[in-house]
Measured scan of single mutants.
Amino acid sequence: KELVLVLYDYQEKSPREVTVKKGDILTLLNSTNKDWWKVEVDDSQGFIPAAYLKKL
């Protein structure tokens, strides 16, 4: 599985998104959309702007 590093805090703005903190390491589930990547946070899944993430 691929991991990503969160570069900036992000507060979810819709139920399909997730809240993350700078420095979090998350599992990347889908990066086919260049603007929004799907990640797994704890036991939930959701989208975060790709610009907030860096592949490890």
Rank of each mutant, 00 (worst) to 15 (best):
L3A: 05
E12M: 15
W36H: 04
L26G: 08
T19F: 06
P15N: 11
Q45F: 13
W36L: 05
K54L: 13
L7M: 08
S14Y: 10
T27A: 09
F47I: 06
Y8Q: 14
A50D: 02
K1D: 08
S14V: 06
E2H: 11
L3S: 06
L5D: 00
Y10F: 06
T32A: 11
N33W: 06
A51S: 14
V41C: 08
V18T: 06
D24C: 06
K34G: 09
K21G: 04
T19N: 08
L53F: 02
Y52A: 10
V6A: 06
D43T: 11
V20I: 05
I25A: 01
S44G: 14
N33S: 09
D24G: 05
L29H: 03
V39T: 00
K1R: 14
A50Q: 05
Y8I: 08
F47H: 05
D43Y: 09
E17I: 06
A51V: 12
Q45Y: 14
S14R: 09
P15C: 09
L53S: 03
E12L: 15
A50M: 05
V18N: 03
K34V: 09
W37V: 02
V41K: 15
P49D: 03
R16V: 10
E12D: 06
I25N: 02
V18A: 06
K38Y: 15
K38T: 08
L26K: 01
P15Y: 08
Q45V: 14
V39R: 00
K13Y: 08
P49V: 04
L26A: 08
D42N: 14
V18H: 04
K1P: 12
S31Y: 07
A50C: 08
K54R: 12
K22Y: 05
W36T: 03
L53C: 15
E12K: 15
K34S: 11
L28S: 01
V20L: 05
K38D: 03
G46V: 15
V41Y: 09
W37H: 02
G23W: 06
W36S: 03
K55W: 06
L26F: 03
K54Y: 11
L56C: 13
A50H: 04
K1Q: 11
D35F: 15
V4M: 02
L26D: 00
W37T: 00
K1V: 12
D9L: 02
K13D: 07
L26T: 01
T27R: 13
D9G: 05
L53H: 02
A50N: 03
Q45W: 15
E2Q: 14
K54E: 13
V18M: 13
N33F: 07
Y8V: 10
V6T: 04
K22C: 07
E40T: 07
L28G: 00
L28I: 04
Y10T: 01
V39W: 01
V6M: 02
L28C: 08
L28F: 02
R16H: 13
K34A: 13
Y10S: 01
D42H: 13
G23A: 02
V18Q: 04
D35M: 12
D42W: 09
L7T: 04
E40G: 09
K34I: 09
N33M: 08
V20N: 01
T32R: 10
L26S: 00
K13A: 10
W37K: 00
V39N: 00
K21V: 07
Y8K: 14
Q45R: 10
Y52E: 02
A51G: 10
D9C: 04
D42T: 08
L26Y: 04
